[in-house]
Amino acid sequence: MAATDITRITPSGSRLRLGAGEIWRQRELLYFLTLRDIKIRYKQTLIGVAWAVLQPVLTTVIFTLIFSGWARFDTNDIAYPLFAMTGLTLWLFVQNAVSMASNSFVNNTNLVTKVYFPRLIVPLAATLAALFDLIFSIAVLAVLMIYYSAIPSPQILLVPVFMIFAFVLAAAVGTLLSALNVRFRDVKFAVPFFLQVWMIASPVFYPASMISEKWRLIFAINPMVGILEGFRSAIFNKPFDWPLIGVSVISLLLIAAVAVVIFRSMEDDFADVI
C-alpha cells in the first residue's frame, strides 16, 4: 500500500483560490448532496412537486392581473403573461437558489463540525438542487410559448448561456450569504427582504427599456438586468443590447470573485463559530 496522498495541516493563511480541483475530486459528494436536497425539498408537502409549477404560474397570474390591467409596460409586442413568465423563469430560480444556499450551512451544522470536505460543496449543492424547479418553470414557459404561438429563431440557442450566467450569479450570491450566515444569523432575516428589493431592481415584470437610456448601463450593474434582457432577446428573437449585457457580465464576474475570496477567508473557522 503506497501512501501517496500527503495531507498537510497548517494554521489558516490566505488561500485565495477556488479549489476547483478538490471539488472535482469530490464531485460524487456534490452529486449526493444535490440529490438529497432535491429529494427532501417537497417531502411532507401535500401537493409535492406541483409547487414547482404553481409558484411560477401563480406569480405570472398575479403580475398579469396587476400590470396588464392598469400599469401597462411596453413589452415590445410580447404578450404580457409570456413576458412575465420569461422573467420569472430565471428570477424564481435565482431567488430559490439564493435562499436555499444562504441557509445551507446553518441547516447542515453537523456536516461542518464532524467531517472535512471542500466547504464550497454545500452551497453549491443547494444551488444545483434549485435547478430542479427551473426545469418545471421552463416547461410552463414552453407551454405558454406554444399557446401564444411565439416561434423561436436560431437565436434561442443562446438561451443556455444566460442560464449559465444566472447559475453563476445565484451560486456566487448564495455562497457569500451562506458564509456570512455562519457568523451572523442576521442573514436569515435579511435575505427575504434583500431578495424582494433585488426583484424590484431587476426587469422581471417590467422591461429594461423603462429605464431612461443614460441610466441603463448603471442599472445593468445588477447582473440580473443583462441576464434577463439577454434571455428574453434570445427567446423572442429581438436584437441583443450588448453594452448592457457586457456591463452585467463584468459585474457578475466581479461579484463571483469577491464571493470566493470572502468565502475562502471565512471557511476555516466555520466549525468553530457555527
Binding site: 494554521p11 489558516s12 461542518v112 467531517v115 472535512y116 473557522d269
Partner: peptide, 8 residues
C-alpha cells in the same frame, strides 16, 4: 485538527 475540520 487532524481531520481538517478546524485549523490549528
Amino acid at each position: 485538527i487532524l481531520s481538517r475540520i478546524t485549523p490549528p
